[in-house]
Design a protein around this nucleic acid. Sequence first.
DNA 1: TATGAATGAGCCTTCATTCAT
DNA 2: CATGAATGAAGGCTCATTCAT
Lengths: 187, 187, 187, 187
Amino acid sequence: MRDGQSTRRRIDDAALRLFVAKGVTETSVRDLAQAAGIAEGTLYRHYASKDDLVADLFAGNYAAFARRLAGLERLDDVVAEVFRFHDENPTLFRFLLLVQHQALPRVPDGADNPVSVLKALIERGIREGAITLTDAALGTAMVLGLMLQPATAVVYGRLDPPLSRFAATISAACWRALNPPKDTDHA
Amino acid sequence: MRDGQSTRRRIDDAALRLFVAKGVTETSVRDLAQAAGIAEGTLYRHYASKDDLVADLFAGNYAAFARRLAGLERLDDVVAEVFRFHDENPTLFRFLLLVQHQALPRVPDGADNPVSVLKALIERGIREGAITLTDAALGTAMVLGLMLQPATAVVYGRLDPPLSRFAATISAACWRALNPPKDTDHA
Amino acid sequence: MRDGQSTRRRIDDAALRLFVAKGVTETSVRDLAQAAGIAEGTLYRHYASKDDLVADLFAGNYAAFARRLAGLERLDDVVAEVFRFHDENPTLFRFLLLVQHQALPRVPDGADNPVSVLKALIERGIREGAITLTDAALGTAMVLGLMLQPATAVVYGRLDPPLSRFAATISAACWRALNPPKDTDHA
Amino acid sequence: MRDGQSTRRRIDDAALRLFVAKGVTETSVRDLAQAAGIAEGTLYRHYASKDDLVADLFAGNYAAFARRLAGLERLDDVVAEVFRFHDENPTLFRFLLLVQHQALPRVPDGADNPVSVLKALIERGIREGAITLTDAALGTAMVLGLMLQPATAVVYGRLDPPLSRFAATISAACWRALNPPKDTDHA
DNA sequence: TATGAATGAGCCTTCATTCAT
DNA sequence: CATGAATGAAGGCTCATTCAT
């Protein structure tokens, strides 16, 4: 370690930054080593391969994010927490978005998957009658869209940060998306 | 030309398919040539470079998509049209999603940009009093999310196609997202 | 044929120009076709291959040049004729210089080889006692150098054209190079 | 490193040899790697590109050659030194000849340019009255020709090595070329 | 642990040449 | 004769990974 930061940490930080800025495939091990201030070979003392680095980086942070959401009882709190997470570290948020979308092995459903956590909450809402929409998968997709697309707009500069200031508006939109006027719900 | 299909067309079809399946960077010119049933060099009689192929493929279809939306007057029609476009050619839809997100040069606003078309429609709604939400950029992001995330869910098998069957539900959700209860709208 | 110029001629002119400007290997058949205003395939109606074009172009002009020198009786006339040839068509002159130097198959000695013609003249001078230097090969090299290096200087802009104005000075230098003071001639 | 020779050195030696034997463009990186006993990628640890290798090889040796000539006071010494340089490493000599002629960026005048060093010497001779020819550029070209064309003859087997044995004869020829009979000097 | 030179497979692209029209 | 799309071998170069130090 050096400068009060472990080599591992330096690699992770550089990786996150470069992956978001240039894309995973477009970032070479040489780029990573240079940005982290280490030798190329050193990376392999910490990760078995570049793919491994990507997978570890994703899995760890994705699960940590899921755990942040896991305890929450209300949809409003989920939206607020997601936005807070984004505002704390937009780069990490963007990395999760990016890599999830891309050619990576699908993460299985479960407690480590933020999407699963959200879906479970919605399913409970439906079961308990608090949500009238009957299709939980559709509801999850809509709520996801209401959160992620504004986040993307912030990333691309089409909306000014912090994202948190939209929490109330978007919470309301989520709520109403999940509780459509009777005759609009599809069979 | 051969087999009643122009070489150009064969390249475009193969490219769309492979780019979506494996990613743009992950698809080699070798892959493309093989899938299109042509020699590697032949690709360069039709496109100046691989990048050019990607850019042309994107620009052409993105603009065509924008034009499909350009004439529509109502948000419901936009949602229906977007979903119809998706159901007609999910691969093309996914390609546009994928490449837009990636490291490509940002497409300027205007009539050739579907997002701009949507935003203009929302702005008109706000101006005319049909929409009470005051932030058009936020509204655009929410509507986009309500359409794209369910589309993504279909692509990933978390929702069964066709996407069109959700049109009514999602239109309603869009509408209500754009017309929040008074006290939820942020300043 | 077109524009009063045969296709063959158009190819030859373009080839000479491009070969001199960019080098033979660096000039592609595509370049040639474009510069000559013909299709790529058309070149092969006139030459069996690109190598053939180069060889024909060289052999024809090299031999023609040799024939221009063949009848001359005096060294002064050779110098004057070489310089006149250069000034008439510097590009052609430069092409012969360039290609001779390069990886082309060596041209055999004989009447079609300007160097052989020059050497024969010098050998006759030695035989007849007009030249005191005994090594004809060395004499040929020196005379060649006295002509070609000033020509090269003109090509590179280190000397102002026309080359012909140096004819007298260089003729004199050639003559004195071939007739060294007694004790300087090597054994 | 391996076999008591640095990788860099192995590359340089192989490059010099192949460039002279087949030409620069005609020598592929594959050829170079094979001849040097290294992997293709290894070349790029030492040079940024093939062009870079050529340029470095030329610039370094050209300048070193110029420095060998820089201190000399007499034209005889220059001729002797040039010929000694040739006889020590004909391949290197030929490489400098070849590449200088070719499409490389022109080397600026100055202390690192052997031609400039020669020209400066001749200019001094003219200034000091030791040389009667008034055109220094022409004189430089002639002296260059008297040295280089015999060297070329040796390379092509038209003259037997070593070149040094012609030093006296050629020095005399240079001297007389620079001091023409009065009425032959051009205006 | 850390290093960085070496590797060789694979990438994008160019090229001379062919051939159906 | 002329065309130009198609070819596929070869070119220069990059890359993730290994290993002796």
